[in-house]
Design a protein around this nucleic acid. Structure first.
Length: 288
DNA sequence: TGCAGTGTTGCTTC
DNA sequence: CGAAGCAACACTGC
Protein backbone atom coordinates (compact mmCIF):
# COMPACT_ATOMS: atom_id res chain seq x y z
CA UNK A 1 0.00 0.00 0.00
CA UNK A 2 1.66 3.17 -1.15
CA UNK A 3 2.35 5.66 1.64
CA UNK A 4 4.43 8.84 1.43
CA UNK A 5 7.79 7.16 0.63
CA UNK A 6 6.29 4.99 -2.09
CA UNK A 7 4.43 7.92 -3.65
CA UNK A 8 7.58 10.08 -3.47
CA UNK A 9 9.58 7.31 -5.17
CA UNK A 10 7.00 7.13 -7.95
CA UNK A 11 6.92 10.92 -8.40
CA UNK A 12 10.72 11.15 -8.68
CA UNK A 13 10.70 8.43 -11.33
CA UNK A 14 7.81 10.07 -13.20
CA UNK A 15 9.88 13.23 -13.41
CA UNK A 16 12.58 11.20 -15.17
CA UNK A 17 10.23 9.38 -17.55
CA UNK A 18 7.05 11.29 -18.46
CA UNK A 19 7.79 14.97 -17.82
CA UNK A 20 7.18 17.18 -20.90
CA UNK A 21 5.49 14.33 -22.72
CA UNK A 22 2.03 14.54 -24.34
CA UNK A 23 -0.94 12.20 -24.00
CA UNK A 24 -2.23 10.89 -27.24
CA UNK A 25 -4.42 7.97 -26.28
CA UNK A 26 -5.95 6.35 -23.21
CA UNK A 27 -7.62 2.98 -22.61
CA UNK A 28 -9.50 1.41 -19.69
CA UNK A 29 -11.49 -1.69 -18.82
CA UNK A 30 -12.68 0.00 -15.62
CA UNK A 31 -14.27 3.36 -16.49
CA UNK A 32 -15.36 3.88 -12.87
CA UNK A 33 -11.73 4.56 -11.98
CA UNK A 34 -12.24 8.01 -13.56
CA UNK A 35 -14.33 9.99 -11.09
CA UNK A 36 -16.83 12.83 -11.72
CA UNK A 37 -16.80 12.72 -15.53
CA UNK A 38 -17.41 9.96 -18.06
CA UNK A 39 -14.48 8.10 -19.52
CA UNK A 40 -15.34 9.43 -22.99
CA UNK A 41 -15.16 13.01 -21.79
CA UNK A 42 -11.94 12.25 -19.88
CA UNK A 43 -10.41 10.83 -23.04
CA UNK A 44 -11.43 13.81 -25.16
CA UNK A 45 -10.02 16.26 -22.63
CA UNK A 46 -6.69 14.61 -21.90
CA UNK A 47 -5.58 13.84 -25.43
CA UNK A 48 -3.16 16.51 -26.59
CA UNK A 49 -2.35 17.74 -23.07
CA UNK A 50 1.31 17.96 -22.08
CA UNK A 51 2.72 17.03 -18.66
CA UNK A 52 4.36 20.21 -17.33
CA UNK A 53 5.08 19.14 -13.77
CA UNK A 54 4.66 16.06 -11.54
CA UNK A 55 4.45 16.47 -7.79
CA UNK A 56 2.95 15.01 -4.63
CA UNK A 57 0.69 16.17 -1.79
CA UNK A 58 0.37 13.55 0.94
CA UNK A 59 -0.39 10.33 -0.92
CA UNK A 60 -1.83 12.13 -3.97
CA UNK A 61 0.09 12.39 -7.24
CA UNK A 62 -0.61 15.51 -9.29
CA UNK A 63 0.27 16.01 -12.94
CA UNK A 64 0.09 19.68 -13.96
CA UNK A 65 -1.04 19.66 -17.59
CA UNK A 66 -1.02 22.24 -20.35
CA UNK A 67 -4.25 24.26 -20.57
CA UNK A 68 -4.53 24.74 -16.76
CA UNK A 69 -5.71 21.19 -16.16
CA UNK A 70 -4.60 18.82 -13.43
CA UNK A 71 -4.57 15.04 -13.36
CA UNK A 72 -4.99 13.86 -9.76
CA UNK A 73 -4.23 10.23 -8.90
CA UNK A 74 -4.67 8.48 -5.56
CA UNK A 75 -3.43 4.89 -5.55
CA UNK A 76 -5.36 3.87 -2.40
CA UNK A 77 -4.60 0.28 -1.30
CA UNK A 78 -3.29 -1.56 -4.30
CA UNK A 79 -2.90 0.92 -7.14
CA UNK A 80 0.46 1.60 -8.66
CA UNK A 81 1.79 3.28 -11.73
CA UNK A 82 4.15 1.63 -14.16
CA UNK A 83 6.00 3.18 -17.07
CA UNK A 84 7.38 1.27 -20.01
CA UNK A 85 8.13 1.58 -23.69
CA UNK A 86 5.87 0.49 -26.52
CA UNK A 87 6.08 0.28 -30.27
CA UNK A 88 3.88 -0.06 -33.34
CA UNK A 89 4.13 -3.53 -34.86
CA UNK A 90 1.94 -4.83 -37.67
CA UNK A 91 -0.63 -2.13 -36.98
CA UNK A 92 -0.82 -2.86 -33.22
CA UNK A 93 0.68 -1.01 -30.26
CA UNK A 94 2.76 -3.48 -28.27
CA UNK A 95 4.92 -3.12 -25.18
CA UNK A 96 8.60 -3.76 -25.83
CA UNK A 97 9.42 -7.19 -24.48
CA UNK A 98 11.55 -6.05 -21.54
CA UNK A 99 10.16 -4.02 -18.65
CA UNK A 100 7.48 -3.63 -16.03
CA UNK A 101 4.56 -4.48 -18.24
CA UNK A 102 5.80 -8.07 -18.32
CA UNK A 103 5.46 -8.56 -14.54
CA UNK A 104 2.77 -11.09 -13.59
CA UNK A 105 1.12 -8.61 -11.19
CA UNK A 106 0.22 -6.55 -14.20
CA UNK A 107 -2.70 -8.67 -15.12
CA UNK A 108 -4.35 -5.97 -12.95
CA UNK A 109 -3.69 -3.11 -15.35
CA UNK A 110 -6.99 -1.24 -15.74
CA UNK A 111 -5.91 2.09 -17.19
CA UNK A 112 -3.30 2.79 -19.82
CA UNK A 113 -1.93 6.04 -21.21
CA UNK A 114 0.03 6.33 -24.41
CA UNK A 115 2.47 9.22 -24.59
CA UNK A 116 4.87 10.35 -27.26
CA UNK A 117 8.45 9.03 -27.46
CA UNK A 118 7.32 5.39 -27.21
CA UNK A 119 6.27 5.85 -23.59
CA UNK A 120 3.38 4.00 -21.99
CA UNK A 121 2.07 4.69 -18.48
CA UNK A 122 -0.21 2.13 -16.85
CA UNK A 123 -2.21 1.97 -13.63
CA UNK A 124 -2.26 -1.50 -12.11
CA UNK A 125 -4.87 -1.88 -9.36
CA UNK A 126 -5.93 -5.23 -7.94
CA UNK A 127 -8.81 -3.93 -5.85
CA UNK A 128 -9.85 -1.05 -8.13
CA UNK A 129 -9.97 1.48 -5.29
CA UNK A 130 -7.65 3.94 -7.01
CA UNK A 131 -9.04 7.33 -7.95
CA UNK A 132 -8.23 9.35 -11.07
CA UNK A 133 -9.62 12.84 -11.67
CA UNK A 134 -9.13 15.54 -14.28
CA UNK A 135 -9.60 18.91 -12.59
CA UNK A 136 -9.22 22.63 -13.09
CA UNK A 137 -7.20 24.72 -10.66
CA UNK A 138 -10.08 25.56 -8.35
CA UNK A 139 -11.24 21.95 -8.12
CA UNK A 140 -7.69 20.79 -7.38
CA UNK A 141 -7.24 23.34 -4.62
CA UNK A 142 -10.51 22.22 -3.08
CA UNK A 143 -9.42 18.58 -3.12
CA UNK A 144 -6.10 19.38 -1.46
CA UNK A 145 -7.17 21.99 1.09
CA UNK A 146 -8.04 19.54 3.87
CA UNK A 147 -4.73 17.67 3.72
CA UNK A 148 -2.49 18.12 6.75
CA UNK A 149 1.17 19.10 7.06
CA UNK A 150 3.87 17.65 4.82
CA UNK A 151 6.17 15.89 7.30
CA UNK A 152 9.32 16.19 5.19
CA UNK A 153 8.85 19.87 4.36
CA UNK A 154 11.90 21.79 5.58
CA UNK A 155 9.58 24.26 7.31
CA UNK A 156 7.87 21.47 9.23
CA UNK A 157 9.71 21.80 12.53
CA UNK A 158 9.00 20.53 16.04
CA UNK A 159 6.87 23.55 16.95
CA UNK A 160 4.64 22.96 13.94
CA UNK A 161 4.40 19.27 14.79
CA UNK A 162 3.37 20.10 18.34
CA UNK A 163 0.68 22.41 16.99
CA UNK A 164 -0.65 19.66 14.72
CA UNK A 165 -1.13 17.37 17.71
CA UNK A 166 -2.37 20.01 20.11
CA UNK A 167 -5.83 19.19 21.51
CA UNK A 168 -6.04 16.06 19.39
CA UNK A 169 -7.97 13.27 21.03
CA UNK A 170 -7.36 9.59 20.42
CA UNK A 171 -4.55 7.10 20.17
CA UNK A 172 -1.21 8.18 18.76
CA UNK A 173 -1.24 5.61 15.94
CA UNK A 174 -4.63 6.75 14.70
CA UNK A 175 -3.67 10.41 14.90
CA UNK A 176 -0.43 9.80 12.97
CA UNK A 177 -2.46 8.09 10.24
CA UNK A 178 -5.04 10.89 10.08
CA UNK A 179 -4.33 12.61 6.74
CA UNK A 180 -5.88 15.86 7.96
CA UNK A 181 -3.26 16.09 10.74
CA UNK A 182 -0.08 14.92 9.00
CA UNK A 183 -0.09 13.81 5.37
CA UNK A 184 1.27 10.59 4.01
CA UNK A 185 1.63 8.22 6.97
CA UNK A 186 -0.29 4.93 6.83
CA UNK A 187 -0.25 1.60 8.62
CA UNK A 188 3.31 0.49 7.83
CA UNK A 189 5.16 3.68 8.71
CA UNK A 190 3.07 4.50 11.80
CA UNK A 191 4.05 1.11 13.28
CA UNK A 192 7.70 1.63 12.33
CA UNK A 193 7.82 5.17 13.74
CA UNK A 194 6.31 4.13 17.07
CA UNK A 195 8.60 1.11 17.51
CA UNK A 196 11.60 3.40 17.13
CA UNK A 197 10.29 5.76 19.80
CA UNK A 198 9.38 2.91 22.20
CA UNK A 199 5.87 4.35 22.46
CA UNK A 200 2.82 2.09 22.51
CA UNK A 201 0.45 2.62 19.53
CA UNK A 202 -2.53 2.97 21.90
CA UNK A 203 -1.06 5.83 23.96
CA UNK A 204 -3.45 8.77 24.15
CA UNK A 205 -1.93 11.79 22.40
CA UNK A 206 -2.86 14.01 25.35
CA UNK A 207 -0.69 11.86 27.66
CA UNK A 208 2.53 12.34 25.67
CA UNK A 209 5.14 14.62 27.23
CA UNK A 210 7.35 17.00 25.29
CA UNK A 211 10.24 14.59 25.15
CA UNK A 212 8.08 11.81 23.74
CA UNK A 213 6.62 14.17 21.15
CA UNK A 214 10.14 15.15 20.15
CA UNK A 215 11.07 11.47 19.74
CA UNK A 216 8.06 10.91 17.50
CA UNK A 217 8.83 14.02 15.45
CA UNK A 218 12.41 12.89 14.86
CA UNK A 219 11.34 9.32 14.06
CA UNK A 220 8.84 10.56 11.44
CA UNK A 221 11.59 12.47 9.63
CA UNK A 222 14.08 9.63 9.97
CA UNK A 223 11.86 6.70 8.95
CA UNK A 224 10.25 8.47 5.98
CA UNK A 225 13.59 9.80 4.72
CA UNK A 226 15.21 6.38 5.01
CA UNK A 227 12.27 4.71 3.25
CA UNK A 228 12.56 7.13 0.32
CA UNK A 229 16.31 6.42 0.10
CA UNK A 230 15.47 2.73 -0.11
CA UNK A 231 12.81 3.23 -2.79
CA UNK A 232 9.82 2.30 -0.61
CA UNK A 233 8.56 -0.92 0.93
CA UNK A 234 8.45 -4.33 -0.66
CA UNK A 235 6.17 -6.63 1.31
CA UNK A 236 2.90 -5.61 -0.34
CA UNK A 237 2.43 -5.56 -4.09
CA UNK A 238 4.02 -2.10 -4.34
CA UNK A 239 6.37 -1.68 -7.28
CA UNK A 240 8.44 1.21 -8.46
CA UNK A 241 7.65 2.70 -11.86
CA UNK A 242 10.16 0.33 -13.36
CA UNK A 243 8.38 -2.67 -11.80
CA UNK A 244 11.17 -3.26 -9.24
CA UNK A 245 10.49 -3.64 -5.54
CA UNK A 246 11.71 -1.10 -2.98
CA UNK A 247 14.29 -2.01 -0.34
CA UNK A 248 12.60 -0.87 2.89
CA UNK A 249 12.66 -4.47 4.16
CA UNK A 250 16.24 -3.76 5.22
CA UNK A 251 14.80 -1.30 7.76
CA UNK A 252 11.45 -2.87 8.65
CA UNK A 253 11.29 -3.61 12.37
CA UNK A 254 7.70 -4.47 13.31
CA UNK A 255 5.15 -4.24 10.51
CA UNK A 256 3.83 -7.75 9.75
CA UNK A 257 6.38 -9.35 12.07
CA UNK A 258 3.82 -10.77 14.52
CA UNK A 259 5.35 -13.67 16.49
CA UNK A 260 8.89 -12.80 15.36
CA UNK A 261 11.53 -11.47 17.74
CA UNK A 262 11.93 -7.76 18.48
CA UNK A 263 15.27 -6.60 17.08
CA UNK A 264 15.93 -4.66 20.32
CA UNK A 265 14.96 -7.05 23.12
CA UNK A 266 14.01 -10.39 21.56
CA UNK A 267 10.42 -10.33 22.82
CA UNK A 268 7.82 -11.62 20.36
CA UNK A 269 6.12 -8.88 18.34
CA UNK A 270 2.37 -8.66 18.94
CA UNK A 271 -0.54 -7.42 16.86
CA UNK A 272 -3.58 -5.51 18.11
CA UNK A 273 -6.70 -4.33 16.32
CA UNK A 274 -7.22 -0.58 16.26
CA UNK A 275 -10.09 0.92 14.31
CA UNK A 276 -10.30 -2.13 12.06
CA UNK A 277 -6.57 -2.14 11.36
CA UNK A 278 -3.57 -3.98 12.72
CA UNK A 279 -0.99 -2.36 14.97
CA UNK A 280 2.29 -4.26 15.30
CA UNK A 281 4.45 -3.49 18.33
CA UNK A 282 6.86 -4.91 20.90
CA UNK A 283 4.99 -5.47 24.19
CA UNK A 284 8.20 -5.07 26.22
CA UNK A 285 9.83 -2.04 24.55
CA UNK A 286 6.58 -0.17 23.90
CA UNK A 287 4.84 0.20 27.25
CA UNK A 288 1.46 1.88 27.40
C1' DT B 1 -15.30 -24.57 -0.04
C1' DG B 2 -15.91 -20.51 2.42
C1' DC B 3 -14.65 -17.00 5.08
C1' DA B 4 -11.44 -13.83 7.40
C1' DG B 5 -7.71 -10.78 6.34
C1' DT B 6 -5.65 -7.20 3.65
C1' DG B 7 -6.00 -1.00 4.36
C1' DT B 8 -7.32 4.06 2.20
C1' DT B 9 -10.85 7.00 2.03
C1' DG B 10 -15.38 8.67 2.37
C1' DC B 11 -19.99 8.01 3.50
C1' DT B 12 -23.59 6.53 6.84
C1' DT B 13 -25.18 5.76 11.38
C1' DC B 14 -25.77 6.43 16.11
C1' DC C 1 -20.39 16.99 16.17
C1' DG C 2 -17.47 12.91 16.67
C1' DA C 3 -16.48 8.24 16.66
C1' DA C 4 -17.34 3.88 14.79
C1' DG C 5 -18.69 0.91 11.18
C1' DC C 6 -18.91 -0.23 6.65
C1' DA C 7 -18.63 -0.13 1.52
C1' DA C 8 -15.92 0.43 -2.61
C1' DC C 9 -13.37 -4.43 -4.87
C1' DA C 10 -10.78 -8.66 -5.53
C1' DC C 11 -7.53 -11.79 -4.37
C1' DT C 12 -4.80 -14.80 -0.87
C1' DG C 13 -4.30 -17.95 2.78
C1' DC C 14 -5.98 -20.94 6.10
Amino acid sequence: MPELPEVETIVRDLNKTVLKKTFFDVWTDSPKTIKKITFDRFKKEIIGKRIERVWRRGKNIIFDLSGEKYLLLHQKLTGHLLVGKWQLKNGKWLPLTQGPLEDPINRFIHLMFWLNNNTMMALSDLRKFAKVELLNKKELEKELEKIGAEPLDKNFNFEKFQNCLKNKKGKIKQVLMNQEVIAGIGNIYSDEILWRTKIHPFREVSSLNKNELKEIFLAIKKVLTKAIELGGESISDFRKLSGEKGQFDLERKVYQREGEKCFRCGTKIERLKIGGRSAHYCPKCQKI
